[in-house]
């Protein structure tokens, strides 16, 4: 009898815990939506804040977010996947690999503001890139590199050796085998790493505030689109932080809604890509 009671008590606790965690998530999302939704309208999304007109808008920040995300991935993905391929296929598990593994693990656990400090001083100062989208992207590339390397490495490790031996038996060179068999087979894992990286990029504020600054203007068309890379640009999250620090909570909640939708959209995209790649292989 007591046992039965204890059982149902534990069961109740487990259900309660599950319910609580789900409600917490739903509650936060709901709260942000209720508070922020009134702010999300056409002008908010498609214009930049104008003191003359007295309107607020985040179009510039949306564009900056896009710039930073794409540029960061352009730097981090080739290096991260390349490092993973080297570690798994060429290095043969020596001390060099263990050193890199240790380094990447340490980098992964480092507070982002330290990356911001480094990026500001090294990329911004020493390399003379100043407060710019480029400085911010390089900084974030260093930050997400471990994430991409680790996921790519795990994915490569999961590829059976029989593929490697089989390809070698056909007279394929190592690089040809990596290109035609290993990378495609590891693609779902690599994509997962990229998605996680995008999540961190979109969610980052401290490191970016220190390196990419808080510019909110839209790039000029034509050459300006390219030049934007060297200009200051605050992402949505940076702008949200700034809005909060100026006690413009409505605006911050509005950006929160946009960010949530963005993250949701990215997650859906990734799932679709993963499902698609799975179907091919």
């Amino acid at each position: 009898m007591i046992r039965k009671l204890a059982d149902s008590f534990i069961l109740g606790m487990i259900y309660g815990a599950a319910f609580f965690s789900v409600m917490l998530l739903v509650g936060i999302i709901g709260y942000v939506f209720v508070k922020g939704f009134p702010f999300v309208h056409w002008t908010f999304l498609t214009t930049v804040t104008s003191i003359l007109r007295g309107s607020t808008g985040i179009a510039g920040n949306l564009v900056n977010t896009f710039y930073v995300a794409v540029l960061t991935l352009v730097f981090a993905v080739p290096v991260g996947v390349g490092a993973a391929v080297w570690m798994n296929e060429y290095a043969g598990g020596g001390w060099g690999v263990r050193l890199i593994e240790f380094t990447t693990q340490t980098l992964a656990g480092m507070p982002s503001v330290i990356f911001g400090l480094f990026g500001m001083v090294f990329f911004g100062g020493t390399l003379g890139l100043g407060y710019s989208v480029l400085t911010g992207s390089l900084t974030l590339a260093v930050m997400v590199l471990p994430l991409i390397t680790h996921n790519a490495r795990e994915a490569l490790r999961a590829v059976p050796d029989s593929y490697r031996i089989g390809a070698a038996g056909m007279g394929a060179t190592k690089w040809y085998m990596i290109r035609t068999i290993l990378l495609p087979a590891a693609m779902p894992g690599i994509v997962t790493g990229i998605i996680l990286a995008v999540g961190r990029i979109v969610g980052e504020s401290a490191a970016l505030l220190l390196t990419a600054g808080s510019g909110y203007l839209l790039p000029q068309s034509g050459r300006g689109l390219l030049h934007k890379v060297l200009e200051s640009g605050g992402t949505l999250t940076v702008q949200m932080y700034l809005s909060m620090s100026k006690a413009r909570y409505g605006e911050a909640f509005g950006i929160g809604v946009v960010l949530l939708c963005l993250v949701l959209a990215i997650n859906l995209c990734v799932r679709l890509i993963a499902a698609y790649t799975k179907r091919i292989f």
Binding site: P160, S162, Y163, I165, G166, A167, A168, G169, M170, G171, A172, T173, I181, P184, A185, F281
Partner: peptide, 19 residues
């Protein structure tokens, strides 16, 4: 590579590539 083209191999565990 040329040698293995002349001397092909089939393994114990069937190992078709994931394609």
């Amino acid at each position: 590579a040329k040698l293995r083209r002349k001397v092909g191999m089939v393994f114990q565990e069937p190992n078709p590539f994931p394609m």
